[in-house]
């Protein structure tokens, strides 16, 4: 499944400072749909290059990270149970507090 992943607010530092990743996620045998839960662990394995604890906590993202699926807060689409579709854009943004 073709997806666009974007990292911002400093999270890009965990993946070699690359903000936009066009990826092709292949479903495992027996899987019929791709959920955010599955995608997160795929990202942890395939995209995050350092300090994975700065991206994830347990099976979700760490506190202070906003997840947006097609520009919508993932709380509105079922969080970890959100089902992804071809060409979806998933954005991970770390909250900023500087000023």
């Amino acid at each position: 499944m073709q997806l666009t992943l974007e990292f911002g607010g400093g999270l890009e530092l965990l993946c070699q400072s690359v903000k936009i990743h066009n990826v092709d996620v292949v479903l495992q045998a027996g899987e019929t749909k791709l959920t955010m839960r599955v995608l997160l662990s795929w990202i942890r394995t395939n995209v995050i290059k350092e300090r994975p604890e700065m991206f994830m906590k347990g099976d979700s993202v760490r506190p202070g990270v906003l997840v947006l699926v097609n520009d919508c807060d993932w709380e509105l689409s079922g969080q970890l149970d959100t089902t992804l579709e071809e060409k979806d854009v998933v954005v991970f943004i770390s909250t900023l507090h500087g000023g």
């Binding site: 400093g10 700065m54 760490r62 506190p63 202070g64 909250t95 500087g98």
Partner: peptide, 24 residues
């Protein structure tokens, strides 16, 4: 939005990480 605060290691400050003044 943020019921739990992020870990302190995730809190960068402008005086450490830099900022381009026109952005704020």
């Amino acid at each position: 939005l943020f019921p739990t605060p992020p870990p302190t290691s995730a809190c960068q400050r402008c005086s450490d990480s830099g900022v381009l003044g026109v952005v704020p």
